[in-house]
Design a protein around this nucleic acid. Structure first.
Lengths: 215, 215
DNA sequence: TGCAGAATTACCCGAACGGGGAAATGACAA
DNA sequence: TTGTCATTTCCCCGTTCGGGTAATTCTGCA
């Protein structure tokens, strides 16, 4: 805290990682228009993010979650591994619980939706730079809820993964080297955790909640 | 065509409809930096789009497909209803076939992904203003394919709609006032059209292809 | 050390599902 | 007018699924 005081005289140096050129441009303009904030680096490539971070040592990183190739979560983890004190704010278009969860797991300090009003974005950058962990209203609660609602075990996740591909219990069993009965057992607890009746509902629910990803 | 020649001396007047402030800002900056293009109106509200169009009479509209409340498709249709010659370019984040299809149905002249490089965006605006219909590589083919691949009948679509909600055949039948057997019959042809084996696969496939929408 | 929870397998049973025909109606196009 | 196609319903049959119950092993936490 005492160390941070020194920084107050110099602007907060921000790095942008987003694959949309127009969005990057807009966000950059938006940040530059704020007193005490400046953009020192930009990229649309998750792989390049770490290199750029090494070079520029920004105070705060605004990281898009959905990046082509290396995703935002991976990029964030890579940065945090080398620079554990890095302040990363994750940006995304949709507020899907799983995205948020994975973002926070990867070490992000905050999570913002892209349609957040500009003043809020600037405020969040300042707060995160000051060492705070900023989450939108009710987000903390939702993260807590998530734990209870769908803390799927490893196996259940694996089974779910195959379920999403439309595989039968027998096929899933064969893929995971399990008996069909075991698969059914996992499905039973999976259904109860997701509060659904059958596999189709489970698939839909999982996709809706962002527990698994299509594409 | 001859009429258009007069316009070449004045800049192409562009209107932006997108609910992301940062994206709008960036896109505006991007357009303004192009010679012969200028932004005359911006809004993040689909309802406001028509009013703004009436006031400003832009040459080209860049319209986000996913808008809160009134969607981009509806806004586009509203504008085209009153101004059949309006040049609308639909923007979106993901290239889902159904989105593209509905966008083109609503009367859009072109369809662009938000991560399209800036020069391409400017080129598209100019082309559309000149009266061309611009579709990304292979898009025309995909639209054609879509027709063949999944030309689901009305009933099949209805059944699919319920299937996505995780309903059983019996429940679907009750909802549509059909016998369970009829539902099964529709499912049979649905499965063969989607080239899948069961309802879960069908649900996943339909969502992937954007034939139906979650949320 | 003991208990909770994850993981694994098993068996039974009734319900749901999917495939293969088949047949009747109505609409719309060739 | 003939024929194709969507729509509707029916039957049979085998497979798959989901619920209930239960037993074993292992791991981690108290």
């Amino acid at each position: 805290m005492a160390v941070k005081k020194l920084k107050k005289i110099s602007p907060i140096r921000v790095m942008l990682v987003d694959d949309h050129p127009a969005f990057r441009k807009g966000m950059a303009a938006l940040i530059e228009s704020e007193p005490g904030l400046e953009v020192v680096a930009q990229t649309g490539d998750g792989r390049e993010a770490l290199n750029l971070f090494r070079q520029k040592k920004p105070d705060v990183v605004l990281m898009d979650l959905r990046l082509p190739g290396v995703g935002g979560v991976e990029a964030t983890m890579a940065i945090r591994k080398e620079f554990p004190d890095a302040h990363v704010i994750v940006l995304t278009t949709f507020d899907m619980d799983e995205d948020i969860y994975r973002a926070m797991q990867s070490g992000a300090k905050s999570y913002l939706l892209k349609d957040t009003p500009e003043d809020k974005i600037a405020a969040t950058i300042r707060a995160v730079h000051a060492g705070e962990q900023v989450l939108p209203h009710g987000m903390a609660q939702r993260l807590a809820d998530r734990q209870k609602r769908a803390n799927l075990s490893e196996r259940e996740m694996e089974v779910l993964q195959h379920l999403i591909k439309g595989r039968s219990n027998k096929e899933i069993g064969a893929s995971l080297f399990l008996s069909e009965d075991t698969v059914k057992a996992h499905l039973k607890s999976l259904f109860s955790k997701l509060k659904v009746q059958d596999r189709t509902e489970a698939a839909i629910s999982a996709i809706r909640q962002g527990i698994v990803h299509l594409e």
